[in-house]
């Protein structure tokens, strides 16, 4: 009973905060609303006795959303949402796609006879996971590890200022303020220090 109430409360929190992500003006609020959504899902996983997955979700997502928040402030014109602005496109189509995917998945869930063989109570889920990761599925686990390493290398290569063929900003050309207009913002080659945002809208 208690578990059910907790589950419904956490589900409501996860969905509500997920919804707020795209409705609030402040980018920092959006980022941390997403973090709250993840934390709620992690707590649901804890209720389902996925002890490690639940806590690890909170742990990982706090770090990820922190990094996301930094990028928000770096890249957005209006991170605090102090001036109202609309940053969306193909709005109706997106709403339609979102609703359609929700309805479609829900119908599929409701019409399927889902198999039920629940978790045996008092199981050692943590020990199971450990032996699986370093036993039968070690290859998969290690592949994921190597993928993450490759990601780190790739991210550094992609984002480094000294690009592979000379300076990363060589030949940089900001988009025009109007369609086909003159490039906006600073001229990179001229080396002027003023960085003006040429968002392109």
């Amino acid at each position: 009973m208690m578990t059910s109430i907790l589950f419904y409360a956490l589900s409501a929190l996860a969905i509500w905060s997920g919804w707020r992500v795209f409705r609030v003006d402040s980018m920092i609020r959006a980022t941390f609303a997403l973090m709250v959504s993840f934390i709620a899902v992690g707590a649901i996983a804890l209720l389902l006795s996925a002890d490690y997955i639940g806590v690890a979700t909170v742990f990982m997502m706090a770090v990820e959303m922190m990094v996301m928040g930094l990028f928000m402030i770096m890249f957005m014109m209006n991170p605090a949402g102090l001036n109202p602005m609309q940053m969306v496109h193909q709005y109706r189509f997106s709403i339609g796609a979102g609703v359609a995917s929700f309805v479609g998945l829900s119908v599929a869930v409701l019409t399927t006879a889902l198999p039920v063989s629940p978790l045996p109570p008092g199981g050692e889920t943590l020990r199971d996971l450990g032996t699986e990761l370093l036993g039968n599925s070690m290859l998969i686990f290690e592949t994921a590890g190597v993928t993450l390493l490759a990601t780190m290398v790739g991210a550094v290569v992609l984002s480094s200022a000294s690009g592979r063929f000379g300076s990363g900003s060589q030949g940089a050309q900001p988009p025009g303020l109007t369609e086909g207009g003159a490039p906006a913002g600073r001229k990179v080659d001229a080396g002027s220090g003023h960085s003006h945002h040429g968002g392109g809208h």
Binding site: D51, V55, F59, A62, V63, M65, M66, L126
Partner: peptide, 28 residues
């Protein structure tokens, strides 16, 4: 009582970074 309480403490550590950041963010 949590079988992964060390990881839970790790989650607390990472959330500390978040709250300190928010404290610096909020005064504008």
């Amino acid at each position: 009582a949590l079988p992964t309480s060390v990881v839970a403490w790790g989650a607390c550590e990472s959330l500390v970074v978040v709250v300190v950041f928010l404290h610096g963010w909020s005064p504008n």
